[in-house]
Design a protein around this nucleic acid. Structure first.
Length: 769
DNA sequence: GAGTTTGAAACT
DNA sequence: CAGTTTCAAACTC
């Protein structure tokens, strides 16, 4: 009873599937480790689609202001909004709280999660369950109706009843085609499915997507916009438990809950639903939450939860534990609006996107660094690429990019990974807002001197000093980074605050509509710990990449005015700078025109040069592997520049070809939920680019797609580091397109930087705003 | 800290 | 799309 039917899945014939294997491998013993803390950083990169920018933009919460933000959020909570379509409802017992997530959930989508606390072990355990109140969480995308319907149906009651049984059930209104697929016993087992296996009862449930969780005390946290609200809710839902409904489909689709056919729940809510974490609660900034889902995490990383977080009875079966872990991720994808688009586009993706940030494990360090723990920080896609780059690998939790890429970047996602305490602490002061952006430095420095990229976490605010922009324009670094302004900021008339979510979101949407890449990181930096740019050291970030390239004229790309220089990366083809002398690497054209200058530039930074040489060597290796190109060229060519960072970044050990190819080759689903956590981390749109670079624009898609894992490995940076795509002109180059294809196929979740990508996907019809 | 320079963002 | 204006950061003093 207690143990789920694993055999089932096997019977299904998925034994071969990595996911299945993974599941089987899971030990019954709770594996939850604080590791997550290390992994806390979740990359939400959902690069995606719809608004690519959304991917990048991820609102971050400023750690310092957590409390403030939280309180502010309260204002956001609209109890009255219960009717609003966009609101997210969390029901705890009898109480219903609405969280407004404008944009978070597409109107069309509704997603409900019913969580019943109960004994984990078996659905059979009624004894435990009785004491526990069933918790239901409903996410209503645009349709409040769904909720109502559900209520009408009495589903809630059922859930509660089950709760009595001691099962935690999460009902997801996902009715996606995918779900259908997975629903079959023989079907692929998704993360979500695990629960099903675990509980036979689910099937009984109306066929709804139910996820049962056993955790007695799980906090459900809503993403940023919600963060504050979630606190209010204090629901001890296992957000974690919430699953993306992808594969959750039960054998019987009849479930009333399935309201959103065609929509992936994931799309809507990928975010890890986590209770308030004492340490921090990431606040969602509009757009910030980009999809990031790391399906893999669910499978692989998710396992690790802080023991505290999930109090588990010994009785609980290991599966239940896994379930919990898995469930955490469920949350919604960041942008609802985007979601809609994404959903349309990526009906196919179901992989669980959500990553549960387990930022803090009881054991962990967490508290000590509440805000800082990056792991959680990256909740959404929103991750700025920069952030990602900066994030130490350790912290990064591999996520599989979800199809949601398309999902929008726009709506704020909340990623909260709070260490769940058995008790609802949602409101802990400790909760910190996590910002996706990597930029900010943990330490507050003098404002002027502040390093935007300082903290690896990127959770901190940028300390803007806006006066006229109200911090609602890209001028504002905080806004641009997807972070709410906080104390460190000296801005005037600031509207970039949690209390103004709607305004912020709408503004972001507008900006994204104008420029999908508006919130994309200007430069991507290496994620390696040692290589963080904090100080713009001479080292060129291996993975550094340009979003668009600079347009410097007088600074010669030798000052911080130059985005490239500031980001510690060399200028590339995409740059339109004049007289480029970027110490990190001159623009290709420049180099070609005047080799001497280039030399000078290197000479100027002799130290840098040395390092670069080394890097170049690496580059050569890489480039040659993929593309036989003269080493010389490598040095001077922009492409080289792009590549170099990658190579340099890679640790010797890491230089092995990565497994990304697996992902590529695998079916989207598998990819999503799948098991290559690390790959996920590394995988990013950039990787695609890298691939592109290697292959070259001309490479046929089929070829790319057909790459064997090994091949792919070559293409992709060994460490999965992102390679900046050589950007030609402002527009996305064909490469990007091709890259995108790869991404979509192999890595649905990652949005490519190229706006086109989304469009290109036949599946995705969602138009960008 | 004030003023200037710079280049991106926003606007037309 | 190009040119101009606005803006805030970077820089200088």
């Amino acid at each position: 009873m207690d143990t789920p039917d694993r055999p089932r899945a096997a019977a299904a014939g998925f034994e071969d599937s990595p996911v299945f294997n993974f599941i089987n491998n899971l030990s019954p013993i709770p594996i939850h480790k604080p590791q997550d803390s290390s992994h806390n950083v979740q990359l939400f990169k959902s690069l995606d689609l719809a608004p690519v920018s959304s991917i990048f933009a991820s609102p971050h919460v400023n750690p310092p202001k957590e409390h403030k933000l939280l309180t502010r959020d309260d204002s956001v909570q609209p109890s009255q909004d219960s009717s609003s379509p966009n609101s997210v409802r969390t029901r705890l017992g009898s109480t219903i709280r609405m969280i407004k997530c404008k944009n978070i959930v597409p109107e069309s989508c509704s997603f409900t999660c019913h969580l019943n606390e109960g004994s984990i072990g078996s659905s059979a355990d009624t004894s435990n369950s009785t004491s526990k109140l069933p918790q239901t969480i409903q996410f209503v995308g645009g349709h409040a109706e769904c909720d109502k319907n559900q209520n009408a149906d009495g589903n809630e009651d059922l859930a509660r009843d089950q709760g009595c049984t001691g099962l935690e059930d999460v009902l997801l209104d996902h009715t996606g085609p995918d779900q259908m697929d997975s629903s079959q016993p023989g079907g692929i087992v998704h993360e979500n499915q695990l629960p099903e296996q675990h509980h036979d009862g689910f099937a009984a449930y109306d066929g709804d997507y139910l996820i049962t969780h056993e955790s007695t005390s799980h906090m459900l946290r809503l993403a940023p916009p919600f963060a504050s609200e979630t606190q209010l809710v204090n629901e001890t839902l296992n957000a974690d438990n919430a699953f993306s409904g992808n594969s959750m489909s039960t054998d019987e689709p009849s479930g009333t809950y399935m309201n959103n056919a065609g929509h992936d729940p994931h799309l809507y809510w990928d975010g890890p639903v986590e209770g308030s974490a004492p340490d921090y609660t990431p606040q969602l900034l509009p757009g910030a939450c980009q999809s990031q889902l790391a399906p893999n995490d669910q499978m692989c990383n998710a396992v690790e939860e802080p023991s505290e977080y999930l109090p588990m009875d010994q009785d609980q079966s290991a599966l239940s534990q896994h379930m919990r872990v898995m469930s955490r991720r469920c949350l919604f994808n960041e942008k609802a609006g985007v979601v809609n688009k994404a959903a349309k586009k990526t009906s196919g993706h179901h992989s669980a996107n959500t990553t549960t940030p387990r930022c803090k494990t009881s054991s962990g360090d967490n508290n000590s660094k509440p805000m800082r723990t990056p792991p959680c920080a990256l909740p959404g896609i929103g991750l700025h690429l920069n952030t990602l780059a900066t994030i130490p690998k350790d912290k990064i939790v591999p996520h599989v990019a979800q199809p949601s890429i398309n999902q929008a970047s726009n709506f704020p996602c909340a990623v909260s990974s709070s260490p769940p305490t058995s008790e609802p602490n949602t409101e802990d002061s400790s909760q910190a807002v996590v910002v996706a952006n990597a930029d900010e430095p943990s330490q507050a420095g003098p404002k002027k001197k502040r390093h935007k990229f300082d903290d690896g976490d990127g959770t901190a605010c940028k300390r803007c000093s806006c006066k006229k922009s109200k911090c609602l324009k890209l001028y504002c670094e905080c806004f641009h980074a997807g972070v709410f302004c906080s104390e460190p900021c000296s801005c005037q008339g600031c509207l970039n605050k949690p209390g103004n979510m709607e305004i912020v979101l709408s503004t972001r949407e507008q900006i994204e509509s104008r420029n999908p890449l508006a919130f994309a990181p200007k430069v991507i930096r290496t994620s390696e710990p040692g290589q963080e740019l904090g100080e713009y050291t001479n080292k060129t970030p291996a993975s550094a990449r340009h979003k668009r390239g600079c347009n410097c004229k007088k600074s010669s790309c030798l000052k911080k005015y130059c985005e490239c220089y500031q980001g510690g990366v060399g200028c590339s083809i995409s740059c339109r700078c004049e007289g480029c002398k970027n110490a990190f690497g001159k623009r290709e054209g420049v180099a070609l025109l005047s080799v001497d200058e280039v030399k000078l530039g290197y000479e100027e930074n002799s130290a840098l040069v040395k390092e670069e040489k080394n890097e170049n060597d690496n580059q050569l290796v890489i480039s040659q592997a993929a593309n036989p190109a003269p080493a010389e060229n490598v040095l001077t060519t922009p492409s080289v520049m792009n590549i170099r960072p990658l190579a340099s970044i890679l640790p010797p050990s890491s230089k092995r070809p990565r497994s990304s190819t697996k992902l590529l080759g695998q079916s989207p689903r598998l990819c999503n939920s799948q098991a290559h956590p690390k790959a996920d981390i590394l995988l990013s749109p950039f990787e695609n680019y890298s691939a592109e670079m290697v292959w070259g624009p001309g490479t046929s898609d089929s070829l790319k797609g057909g790459l064997s894992p090994q091949t792919s490995v070559k293409v992709v940076s060994p460490n999965k580091k992102r390679v900046s795509p050589p950007r030609i002109g402002t527009g996305l180059s064909p490469i990007c397109k091709s890259g995108r294809k790869l991404i979509l196929k192999s890595i649905p979740s990652f949005p490519s930087l190229c706006g086109d990508v989304n469009n290109a996907d036949p599946k995705t019809t969602s138009p960008a705003p």
